[in-house]
Amino acid sequence: MSAVLVFVDRHGAAADAGLSARTQELLTLARTVGEPVVALAGPLFPAARTGFGAAGVGRIYQSEQHELFDYLAAPKADFLAQVSGKHQPAAVLLENSAEGKEIAARLGIALSAGVICDAVGLDAGLGAQKSVLAGSYTVTCRATTAISIITVKSNSVHAETAADPAEPVVEAVSVSFGAASLTAKITERSAKPASGRPELGEARIVVAGGRGVDGNFGPVEELADALGAAVGASRAATDAGWIEHSAQVGQTGKTVSPQLYISAGISGAIQQKAGMQTSKVIVAVNRDGESPIFEIADFGVIGDLFTVLPQATAEIKRRRG
């Protein structure tokens, strides 16, 4: 069976942290099309090693060289190019984050390999499914080159452990970086406070607020917490500074496809819809019955979010006793 190289970045991971949901999803997908091999940037602690073993990873190429983390994207692409040269994978899988796509882009040039991003599924012949033009088409596409480079959206596969666990062999890699790779230097990093809520891109349920919340995300957050949901926002709300930019859903924010998206006080502009219209179920609360959001809502309430949301939150709590 051909090898599928999965890129895992564990820079700054806590010693007792297991594999992230995204990594487990990538490894699960890798097993459906080949034999998973990992390129690991960062430390390998026992918890992660156990996780890789359970996922059936037989070999881990590892580098902790500081250049990988001091410069943007390019050194990681060098690392993957070097490992690909050694192991000749049929495919390289990465997360679909901004950085994942950038690494993939550069790796594509380094290996003369086709890059597919935003994939939600893979068939045995490495055909990748993705949705294009804001959900208006589903396409199957492929790299026509010897190696396929694919970034996979989170939540596209259900993570499972392997039927045959492995005892991973770890091989340290000393990457030789290209001169042009050590040029975009990260001079400052400031961590963002963790919210304690599920991550927006991975959440099963998203409750989002827009200009209609008028500076008060309280009712949105309380409903989100009652549902165990992530909080999202329109650009009007993030631009106003009511919530951090990373909560923005839409063309220039996150694209989400949760089981349930509750939109409150959001009109439903095309750029907002671009980020949420592939959600399974859409619920909208808006005072204005003419709002375009109602054109795509499975359940819509024409009403004031400041009465409808708290009532729904109280009702959920009451039913759960």
Binding site: G108, S112, A113, G114, V115, I116, G127, S131, V132, G135, S136, Y137, T138, V139, T140, C141, R142, A143, T144, T145, Q277, I282, G289, F294, E295, I296, A297, D298, F299, G300, V301, I302, G303
Partner: peptide
């Protein structure tokens, strides 16, 4: 280095139940 095998138009989302 990439090619599209096939494309399928997705039906446009339609409105469901809207209540006041």
């Amino acid at each position: 280095w990439t090619a599209i095998d096939s494309a399928q138009a997705q039906p446009a989302r339609t409105a469901g139940t809207i209540i006041a």
